[in-house]
Simulated assay, not measured.
Amino acid sequence: MNATEKKKEYDAKLDSKKRLTIRGARTEYYHVTEFEDGSVKLSPRELIHPDEISKRTLEMMDKAMKNLEEGKVSEPVDMEELEKLLEE
Rank of each mutant, 00 (worst) to 15 (best):
N2F: 07
N2T: 02
N2Y: 04
T4G: 04
K6F: 13
D11A: 08
A12H: 05
A12M: 05
K13Y: 14
L14F: 09
S16C: 01
K17M: 06
K18P: 00
R19V: 01
L20Q: 00
T21V: 10
T21I: 12
R23Q: 12
R26K: 14
T27V: 13
E28I: 01
E28C: 02
Y30R: 04
H31T: 04
H31Q: 14
H31N: 09
H31M: 14
V32D: 07
T33V: 08
E34N: 09
E36T: 03
D37Y: 06
G38V: 08
S39F: 04
V40H: 03
V40S: 01
K41D: 10
K41E: 13
L42Y: 12
L42G: 10
R45L: 15
L47P: 00
I48V: 14
E52K: 08
R56N: 12
R56G: 10
L58G: 03
L58R: 15
M61T: 06
A64Y: 15
M65Y: 15
N67D: 15
N67C: 13
E69N: 07
G71H: 01
G71F: 03
K72Y: 09
K72D: 14
K72R: 14
V73A: 09
E75S: 08
E75N: 08
E75M: 04
D78V: 03
D78E: 11
E80A: 14
E80V: 03
E80P: 00
E80M: 05
E81V: 06
L82D: 04
L82V: 15
L82K: 05
E83N: 06
K84N: 12
K84C: 02
L85Y: 06
L85W: 02
L85I: 09
L86Y: 13
E88F: 05
E88C: 01
